[in-house]
Design a protein around this nucleic acid. Sequence first.
DNA 1: AAAAACCATTAAACCGTTTTAATTGACCAA
DNA 2: TTGGTCAATTAAAACGGTTTAATGGTTTTT
Lengths: 344, 344
Amino acid sequence: MKRITIVDVAKKAGVSKGTVSAVINGKNTVKPETREHILKVMKEMNFRPKGVARNLKNGHQDKSIGIIIKDINYPFYTAIATGVKEYASSKGYSVIITSSENNHESEKKFSHLFSTKDIKGAIIAPIVEGTAEIEHLFNLKMLNFPFVLLEDVKGIQANVVAIDNLKAIKRAVKYLMDCGHTKIVHFAGPPHSSHTQERIEGFRHAFSESTLVFHPDMIVQIGSDYEESYKKTIEYFKKLNKEDYPTAIVCFNDLQALSVMLALKELNIRVPDDISIIGNDDIFYAKIYPVPLTTIRAPQREIGKKAAEILIKNIESSTLLPVEKVVLETELVIRESTKVLVRN
Amino acid sequence: MKRITIVDVAKKAGVSKGTVSAVINGKNTVKPETREHILKVMKEMNFRPKGVARNLKNGHQDKSIGIIIKDINYPFYTAIATGVKEYASSKGYSVIITSSENNHESEKKFSHLFSTKDIKGAIIAPIVEGTAEIEHLFNLKMLNFPFVLLEDVKGIQANVVAIDNLKAIKRAVKYLMDCGHTKIVHFAGPPHSSHTQERIEGFRHAFSESTLVFHPDMIVQIGSDYEESYKKTIEYFKKLNKEDYPTAIVCFNDLQALSVMLALKELNIRVPDDISIIGNDDIFYAKIYPVPLTTIRAPQREIGKKAAEILIKNIESSTLLPVEKVVLETELVIRESTKVLVRN
DNA sequence: AAAAACCATTAAACCGTTTTAATTGACCAA
DNA sequence: TTGGTCAATTAAAACGGTTTAATGGTTTTT
């Protein structure tokens, strides 16, 4: 089961490994017939030259960075990746994308992969909470592997580019209050996500800074999976008397919001006439929706761009740079899923 | 500007490189104080051990495959990637994703990257047309690099997993004909895509197999970019008399269809009451749309899965396997954007 | 016919690490 | 004092290729 090397090929072909190497690299110094012969032997043995070994000697300086996102199917992350890509390309870097699917094992695997394959640095949407785990990810202290995080992990000494989730949701809630809504609820995300917690926090803060009073019932467990949030929304409203319906819902993210709107349609509840909906993220499909979604926009491309910028700066520096933490601003994008409540 | 190596560190720290290596790898054979000292020197010099070299010696057999898609923001491709991922994981492979953005240079860069970094094989949605270019991509004859294509390139001797685009569109058109539509048009994709051509072909075939007659005006240049197709759709209808409106549109893909539906709404044309719309691909968001889209479903996950299966089989085989070409079936998914035309 | 030039091939050095075997020095027991 | 252990370190081999300089055999030039 031993790997076939260039020596094996050389031996079988009755030539030196230098010659084999020459044909692999298309050098024109080798006689056509030996070339053909070697090619034949290579094919017979199904010889695949080992990339890292080739790489080592000639020191191919191909510049590339990696990014680990949580879900390749969520447009929010692919938009960030696009931002990374745009900036990185302009600096001559290729970017390779991996998706952890919220699985810490994958996260570990990929970070190991990166450091092992001469990827020059990485941008990570981290899953784990602990500082130690993250540092462990890149064997940080040992390898000096440059990376930047897309979420602030409490107490970590690392580069971070992120948005202020708490503030974002607070902004959304305040906008609804300004529109005259008083019966506002929050449809919360998946239980174990740090985003879910931050957004619940933001929701509460908004109330504590207003004259309205917060009640735990205002937080509804909905999740962000498409099927799940659809079902749970239906259930939620089925359990309620019409007069107890909220007049506005702050959603965990845009995908959930889309799903909720679909459920409301099924229930014959009109958006925004009966209920205002506000999303979060501003993914591409939020504006394509026939009732364009009011949402809190996270500057996805800019996040990617900024992260790439910091990363590449670190990669190219010959000295260890001080840690940077940047928080980008979110923006309320008012479209058609929310409306001012007229008192009667 | 020379790279800092372990020897430089060793020299500066006054130890042998073996010792430095030991601290990098967290061996417990090194005295705490030397360890600390070496760590300090490493930090000072900002030493980053070269991955490929580490890899070469200890021969880390981390199994990973790559995939090159055309557009990371189009859910069709990320769904394929998900299929790849699912199968690959089950076989212990990690998958890394890259996006060529329809740019041949990127495609070349990534394939080179893969073969150079000991990625074991690749799945590619190819941009280029020529057999030679594709073979060149992996220096095919030389490196025996295993790969599978997601589109059939005419005359190529390579593994392919794809769908029959022509047949798919034909199916769509026939369905509309069966529904009684006679004024059917095709909103074509971006001019230089091979998909665009295949789909136009399919549209014509459907006509040649029916009693209706094809006219070149039935092919409308719309493109697939969201903004562009929105605008062009509006223009198209503005130029037409109401009585000349088609009663059905076969769209290039679902994203275009979504965009078209949005434009129709703007124009106060109802879907499906005034015009039936049929998409292509069945991306995730097609069914979330309030008028769920009738479309030709390409089995995205299955495509990914099958491609991964063939790829891994080739990777793990010690002999060169014969080329496989598999064509997966598409399926008409009837939802609410099309309706039967009642004669009056 | 000898020298020069050329072609194809090979042997050896090299890339930057890890690993193994050998070495050194300190400590302890007899 | 001698020898044996043990802990810490080092020198050298190894990983699997590429590249360079040397080699030997032909052909061409003078």
